[in-house]
């Protein structure tokens, strides 16, 4: 807030300087442009700017980010889905078809021991993520690991699909989760000029566009029926579905 104030004052100063100093410089240099020259300059300038309009519309559509049409509903749906996972055990919804939730990754590991233990990287030990474990009806010797992400929004931009999933590996009965590293997203959004905003029901003093929604990833494990699970120190992060208590 303060820097923007300083910035705008600086701008004003520069503008004033240009307005007052420039004509003086021009007088010193005494470059006189006749009215015809000025007319041509003015005409060309306007003409060039006008030509830009069709140019803009002809720009090929690359992979632009598109704003969510109905972000409020997406948020509601994803929140509902998550809370249902906490409340209604076992899982009542199919995460793959649930609106507001995206699958980031899916892996399958062959079980090599009778017990499953976990190792979660220190960098992600922040309570952001939840691990849900569901027992399958059969002992097929496979652990299915899927990572999901509920809708992530910043100012209407849905960047859920851009998020890198946690790296999952399995070795000697231990399922390890590692962070994909710190991720930074930098989006560029255009705002209509204040002249247009005024008639779009938005005035230039209130420009905040909705809130940000962040949530962690959901790791969904499907394990063989008789696999023993050792939650170890990760008691808080691992939730057993099927009403089972470890």
């Amino acid at each position: 807030m303060r820097t923007s104030l300083v910035f705008s004052q600086l701008l004003l100063l520069i503008v004033l300087a240009i307005i007052f100093i420039f004509p003086k410089i021009r007088q010193k240099v005494s470059v006189y442009i006749s009215w015809k020259g000025n007319f041509i300059v003015a005409g060309l300038y306007l003409g060039l700017l006008i030509i830009l309009v069709p140019t803009l519309y002809m720009l090929p559509d690359k992979s632009f980010v598109k704003l969510m049409d109905d972000k409020d509903q997406a948020i509601v749906l994803s929140q509902d889905a998550i809370s249902s996972m906490y409340q209604h055990l076992p899982l009542a919804v199919n995460l793959d078809t649930q609106q507001g939730i995206y699958r980031l990754s899916s892996q399958t590991f062959k079980v090599d021991t009778k017990q499953l233990s976990f190792n979660i990287d220190g960098a992600i030990n922040s309570g952001n993520h939840q691990i849900f474990v569901e027992r399958k009806d059969v002992d097929d010797g496979e652990i299915e690991v899927s990572t999901y992400e509920a809708t992530q929004l910043v100012g209407g931009i849905d960047f859920t699909k851009l998020i890198l999933p946690l790296t999952v590996s399995y070795q000697n009965g231990t399922l390890s989760f590692r962070s994909a590293g710190r991720q930074t997203f930098d989006f560029r959004q255009f705002n209509p000029d204040f002249t247009v905003n005024q008639f779009k029901g938005q005035t230039f003093w209130d420009l905040n566009r909705g809130s940000s929604i962040f949530s962690g990833q959901i790791i969904y494990l499907r394990v063989p029926k008789s696999l023993e699970i050792d939650q170890g120190k990760y008691n808080d992060y691992i939730r057993m579905l099927n009403g089972e208590t470890p």
């Binding site: 910043v154 710190r182 991720q183 989006f187 560029r188 705002n191 420009l207």
Partner: peptide
């Protein structure tokens, strides 16, 4: 949060 930083710059 500690794993994500999202910046949205608005231009006009």
């Amino acid at each position: 949060n500690d794993e994500l930083t999202v910046t949205v710059s608005t231009y006009s």
